[in-house]
């Protein structure tokens, strides 16, 4: 959607943020904005869910309103580490 010009934010739990970043990267969007919340979320009641959403709102609003160049500037370092983590990662594929 971002590539079609629609400002987009991905929502993921913290344990899936790297995965989300890599999947976005395979789709050509390595700098997608990811709003994260602690894993898991299935057990949360509506009130608790609402609190989680409110905690993510600043990231979501930034992601939908900031110019792409500013988003890339803010995310670049994090994205790079998430896609290619430092240290030993056994992988035959570019990650």
């Amino acid at each position: 959607m971002e590539k079609r010009g629609v400002p987009t934010v991905m929502i993921a739990t913290d344990m899936f943020k790297q995965f989300g970043r890599r999947m976005a990267s395979t789709q050509g969007c390595p700098f997608a904005v990811i709003a994260e919340t602690p894993n898991p979320i299935r057990q949360l009641d509506p009130e608790a869910l609402k609190a989680r959403v409110e905690a993510m709102l600043p990231t979501i609003i930034d992601g939908l309103t900031l110019p792409p160049s500013e988003i890339v500037r803010r995310i670049k370092g994090v994205a790079s580490e998430q896609i290619r983590p430092a240290g030993i990662v056994r992988s035959s594929v570019p990650i």
């Binding site: 995965f19 999947m23 035959s92 594929v93 990650i95």
Partner: peptide
């Protein structure tokens, strides 16, 4: 599936 598709555990 792992080496070409990238289904490396913990990565993809």
């Amino acid at each position: 599936l792992n080496n070409v598709g990238g289904a490396l555990p913990g990565v993809y």
